[in-house]
C-alpha cells in the first residue's frame, strides 16, 4: 500500500472531519463575501445575486473571529462571562447540594420517595424554563432569578439519577452484608453509595446540559448582564457576528464541561452494576 494511502486510512476520521468543517466555513465565508455570486454570475446571470448574502444577516467566520478578538481585548465581555459563570456555579452547586442527598434519601427511604415522587415527575415533565416569568416576578431580573432557574433545571436529573443509583444496588451484596450484621449506616456508606457513583456522574452530565439551558434562556428572557444577555442585545441590534461569538462561547463551555464529565464517567464505569448480566 502506498504510504500516503496508509496515512489517510489511519487518520480517516480526523481528515474527513477537518475537510468538511473547512469546506463548511469556506462556503459560509463565500456567501457573505460574494465569492459564489461572482463565480456563478456568468452561468446564472442575475439569479446569482441570491448567492450573495448580507453580513448583517449571516455574518461570516472571519467577521466572528475579528469580533471575538475585539470583545476580548477591549475587555467588555469579561463582565458578562463572570456573571454567567457565577449564575451557573451557584445554581449548579445548590442543585448538587440538594438533588444528590434528596435522591439518595429517596432511594433509601421508600416512604420519602413516595412523598416526593409526584412532585419530581411533574417537575421532570415541565420544561422548567416555563417557570421563568414566575421566577422573575418572585426574585427579579438580577442574578438570583438565573441561579434559581439553573437550580431547577439541574436538580431534577441529579435527584432522579441518584435515586436510580441507590435502587439498582446489587441485592446480593446487601443480603451478604445484612447476613454479617452490618449496621444500616455502614451498608449505606460501603455498598449503596459506591454503587450509586456512576449514576450520580451521569446525573451531573445531564445536569450540566440543563443548567446551561437555564443560564442561556434566563439571560435571553430578562437580565442585565451575562453571555445570554449579550446574545439577545446583539441580536436585537443586528450584530450577528456578536451573537455568534456568544454562541461559540456557550458551545465551548458546554463541550469542555460535558467532555470532562464524560471522562470521569468512563473512569467510574467499571463500578456500575451490570443490571442485564445479574444471575
Amino acid at each position: 500500500m502506498p504510504l500516503f494511502l496508509r496515512f489517510y486510512l489511519e487518520r480517516e476520521r480526523a481528515i474527513l472531519g477537518t475537510i468538511t468543517v473547512v469546506f463548511f466555513l469556506c462556503f459560509w465565508e463565500g456567501l457573505t463575501r460574494g465569492w459564489w455570486a461572482d463565480l456563478l454570475g456568468p452561468v446564472l446571470g442575475s439569479a446569482a445575486a441570491r448567492w450573495r448574502i448580507s453580513p448583517i444577516f449571516l455574518s461570516s467566520p472571519t467577521a466572528i473571529a475579528r469580533t471575538a478578538i475585539r470583545l476580548f481585548s477591549a475587555g467588555e465581555i469579561w463582565n458578562d462571562l463572570r456573571v454567567s459563570g457565577l449564575e451557573f456555579l451557584l445554581g449548579f452547586v445548590l442543585a448538587i447540594a440538594v438533588g444528590i442527598p434528596a435522591g439518595l434519601a429517596a432511594g433509601w427511604y421508600r416512604r420519602f420517595c413516595f412523598a416526593i415522587e409526584p412532585f419530581l415527575s411533574a417537575l421532570n415533565a415541565t420544561p422548567r424554563v416555563a417557570l421563568l416569568p414566575l421566577i422573575i416576578i418572585w426574585v427579579g431580573i438580577g442574578i438570583w432569578s438565573k441561579v434559581l432557574i439553573v437550580f431547577l433545571g439541574a436538580v431534577v436529573p441529579l435527584c432522579l439519577n441518584a435515586l436510580a443509583g441507590v435502587r439498582t444496588t446489587d441485592a446480593k451484596l446487601l443480603r451478604v452484608a445484612r447476613s454479617f450484621k452490618a449496621a444500616e449506616g455502614r451498608l449505606f456508606l460501603t455498598i449503596i453509595l459506591p454503587s450509586a457513583v456512576p449514576f450520580i456522574l451521569t446525573g451531573l452530565r445531564l445536569g450540566v446540559g440543563r443548567a446551561m439551558v437555564g443560564v442561556v434562556v434566563g439571560e435571553l428572557y430578562a437580565a442585565t448582564a451575562g453571555v445570554g444577555f449579550m446574545i439577545t442585545v446583539a441580536g436585537a441590534s443586528f450584530q450577528t457576528d456578536k451573537v455568534f461569538v456568544g454562541v461559540v462561547i456557550i458551545a465551548l463551555a458546554g463541550v469542555l464541561m460535558i467532555e470532562a464529565l464524560a471522562r470521569l464517567e468512563r473512569r467510574f464505569e467499571t463500578w456500575r452494576p451490570k443490571v442485564g448480566a445479574a444471575t
Partner: peptide
C-alpha cells in the same frame, strides 16, 4: 459519519435555544 460527526457533536453541546436571536 466521519464527515458530519463534528457538526453533530457541536450542535449537541450547544443549548440550541442560544441560537434563538439569530
Amino acid at each position: 459519519y466521519f464527515c458530519l460527526g463534528p457538526f453533530i457533536d457541536v450542535l449537541n453541546a450547544v443549548p440550541r435555544v442560544a441560537l434563538l436571536p439569530v
